[in-house]
Every structure is written in C-alpha cells, then in structure tokens.
C-alpha cells in the first residue's frame, strides 16, 4: 500500500527560524489525518509543503509515491481549503468552483455541470450566481470545499477551515466533513489548533511543537498514552507528576493523570481543596496533596466540597500513564 503522503527528514527553515525541523511522517491512503499544535508549531508549514506553496530546505516529500519536492502547486493533484477561504471576489460562486477545471482547459458546459454537482454536494445547489461577498461564513466555507473537491484531488488539505465559524456551526460542519470524507474515501489532511476538533474528527492525529512532530497515533493513543509532558498538557489537560508520586514507577520518570480520572474515594489519599469552579456537568477542584498540586474533575452530582475542606481522593492505577524520561 502506497502512503498518500510521506515525509522523510523534511525541514523548512526561514532564515534562522526552523519552522519545520526534521519531520518523518506517513499519511495513509483514505485516512482523515489531523495535524494539531499551537501556532508556530510547524503544522501549517507542513500543510503548505504538501500543497507546494513551500519547498523543503532539506528532506524528501512523496505524494502517492511520486517525488513532490520542487514541483509547483499547480502541478500537484492536491487541493486546499484555505483558512480565509480565499474565494475570488471578482467571480460568482459558480466560476469560483469551476476555476480549477477552467485552467485545466475544460469546456464551459462541462465545468458548469461539474460546479453545480459539487455545489449540490455541499448543499448549496442554486447558489451559483451569487457573489462570494453575499454569502455567510458557513456558506463561504462550503464553497471553498466544493471548489477544492470538484477537481477530484488525491489529497484534500484543510487549513483550520472551521476557525472562523461560531460554535454551533463548527460542530455541524465537523460532522459534515467527517461524513463527506467517509463517502468520498479521500485522504483528508486537516490542520487545527483545537484539540477537541482533532480528537473527535481524525483517524489519526499528529501533535506538533517547535517545528517537530511530537507524537502520532489514534485519538485514543494520544489522549491516553501521551509520550511527553507537552502532549499530555496540550491534548486535554493533565496532571503531570513524578511517577513514584502516583505509585507507578521510579522518581525520574513522569506520569500523566487526567483530571477526570481522579475521584472522591473515602479510602484514598487525604487532600486539601484549594479552589472550586462549577462547570455544569462537572466541577473542577484544585487540590493540594502533600506538596503536589492536582486538578480534578468530579461529577457535579456529588456533595460539593468547599475550598479549605479536607477530602479523600483516589485513582485507578491503570489510568496512570508513565511517559518516557525525555519529558
């Protein structure tokens, strides 16, 4: 099986800034792959390297086994949904969607038909004559999607496509994107800084920081078994404590314990409540256990301890994940 995209030792420097620094990465055919990281972590540069807007300073990029380094974006059968949508303001929606076919020489009837079909696919049938400026944010997003998909790309790149939408619409689009990807069987590469979005949508997630790929794996892998303090903290929040503190290993290793895995336990360790915040279904407690500060999320149905109260807490040893010592 050929990988959809493969990076071998890929770096991209901007002057002395190492935007992408020695990344090895394989994206499988037909998978929904998310690249997650804070801004400046190198995830967007990786996407732009696949699209061809950037060329690697060093290393090797293959798309479906074909050498991509040095190939300009317009010769890559790869399309992008831009963060700003980048719809052409001087064209109507139909001409926007048909643009890719037009520059490849398709005739007018053919490309108009394809554009209408693509618009129907994103539930915008009949919007062809409108101008981009007349559409709502969600509609523009769909046009951008149709404009990319109409070209039947081998890989679809999405650069924080939902970032500009409000919460309700974002959740709806997440589901639509997911089902669209399943229906088309297309490889999606999705860049986001929103960990919930990455975990809920992607088959596999790569976490980036400082130009390096920190970890790659399924959502559950990343969440349950973070391999570094950074991943544990960035993906969800975590109590990162010395391994011996949670009884899970030697003192020189770090362990991750998710706040929701701490529970009130009459047989557990004694802790002092330092803060309390009500979050609806759960409450968030700040705890002091000896010298160690911990955060715990407990169901809001329990009797609510007040700051200053003494409580007893415990956790399941199986929920504690001991990380490599490089953390």
């Amino acid at each position: 099986m050929t990988e959809a995209v493969s990076f071998r030792g890929v770096s991209r420097y901007f002057g002395s800034v190492r935007a992408v620094d020695g990344v090895d990465l394989d994206i499988r055919d037909g998978e929904f792959f998310a690249m997650l990281g804070p801004s400046g972590s190198g995830k967007t540069t990786c996407l732009r390297l696949i699209a061809g807007f950037e060329q690697p300073t060093a290393g090797d990029i293959k798309i479906y086994g074909e050498q991509a380094a040095g190939v300009p974006p317009y010769r890559r059968n790869v399309n992008t949904v831009f963060q700003s949508y980048a719809l052409f303001p001087h064209m109507n929606v139909r001409d926007n969607v048909a643009f890719g076919l037009r520059v490849k020489g398709a005739g007018k009837p053919e490309r108009h038909k394809a554009a209408e079909d693509a618009l129907a696919m994103v539930e915008l049938a009949g919007f062809g004559d409108r101008r981009a400026g007349e559409l709502s944010g969600g509609q523009r997003q769909r046009v951008a999607l149709a404009r990319a998909l109409v070209n039947k790309p081998k890989v679809l790149l999405l650069d924080e496509p939902l970032g500009a939408l409000d919460l309700k619409l974002r959740e709806q689009m997440q589901e639509e994107l997911r089902s669209l990807q399943r229906a088309l069987g297309l490889t999606f590469v999705f860049v986001t800084h929103d960990q919930d979005e990455a975990l809920s949508m992607a088959d596999r997630v790569a976490v980036f920081a400082n130009g390096k790929m920190q970890q790659v794996g399924t959502a559950e892998d990343i969440y349950r078994r973070p391999n570094s303090r950074f991943v544990a903290d960035f993906v969800g929040s975590s109590n990162v404590v010395p391994a011996d503190f949670v009884g899970a290993g030697p003192h020189d290793r770090w362990a991750s314990l998710r706040p929701e895995d701490i529970r009130l336990d009459p047989l557990g360790h004694e802790a002092v409540v330092t803060s309390r915040a009500f979050h609806g279904r759960v409450i968030k407690l700040g705890l002091k256990l000896g010298n160690q500060s911990l955060t715990a999320l407990i169901p809001a149905t329990e009797t609510l301890p007040q700051p200053g109260d003494k409580v007893r807490v415990g956790w399941d040893r199986a929920r504690v994940h001991v990380m490599g010592n490089g953390a």
């Binding site: 061809g52 807007f53 317009y74 052409f88 303001p89 643009f99 520059v103 990319a148």
Partner: peptide
C-alpha cells in the same frame, strides 16, 4: 491566499 488558491487549483 488568492494567488495561492489559484495555483492550488492548477493555474
């Protein structure tokens, strides 16, 4: 991004 979008679409 408009110029990149055009190139991305094959122009």
């Amino acid at each position: 991004a408009l110029i990149e979008a055009a190139m991305d679409l094959g122009a």
